[in-house]
Write a protein that binds this DNA or RNA. Structure first.
Length: 159
DNA sequence: GCCAACGTTGGC
DNA sequence: GCCAACGTTGGC
């Protein structure tokens, strides 16, 4: 099993929004970066755990834990000319863009802000903390996953 | 294949 | 709003 960090702008789609979806599950659509697509296609598996991360907002940080609940499948928005995510170069016979279904798994007992992540030398390898990293999905080492769970007041053994 | 121009991301 | 970083595009 691998672990992940998924970024979203809360004005667009927040952790709270995810909890309000039917089945507390949402298709993670709109990925238009090849490296992130390849993560979903080649490395993600149903059952993988990860974190929701709020970006581009007054207080960036992690509100809780999510779970990947589907394999990668074509992102239908890529074929919809009315969608902001429309890509005329994506051929339905050979879809360029993929998504996975993401489900709420657990709330943190307290929000863990980005400023706090930067204070922990244990987390210095976190891709999200590296300068210039803009990938909307990044892999996490197991040790980092566990460390972050504990920062958020969640026991990783109970997930 | 190179690379300059441009667009986007995201913290501050 | 600023700016650093990086991906994409397109001319050559």
């Amino acid at each position: 099993m691998r672990h992940w960090l998924l970024k979203s702008e809360p004005d667009t789609f927040s952790f709270e929004d995810l909890k309000e979806r039917p089945g507390r599950t949402e298709p993670w659509n709109g990925v238009r970066n090849y490296q992130v697509r390849n993560y979903m296609r080649d490395e993600m598996e149903p059952g993988d755990l990860g974190f929701f991360y709020h970006s581009s907002c007054p207080e960036p940080g992690i509100p809780g834990v999510i779970k990947i609940v589907s394999a990668a499948r074509p992102d239908p928005h890529a074929f919809d000319p009315k969608s902001d995510y429309y890509d005329p170069k994506s051929d339905p016979e050979n879809p360029r863009w993929l998504l996975v279904d993401v489900a709420w798994r657990a709330d943190f007992t307290r929000f863990v802000p980005l400023t706090e992540l930067r204070e922990h030398p244990e987390l210095s390898e976190l891709l999200i903390l590296r300068r210039g990293n803009r990938l909307s999905i990044t892999p996490l080492e197991l040790a980092d996953f566990r460390f972050l769970c504990r920062l958020g007041g969640v026991d990783p053994k109970k997930l």
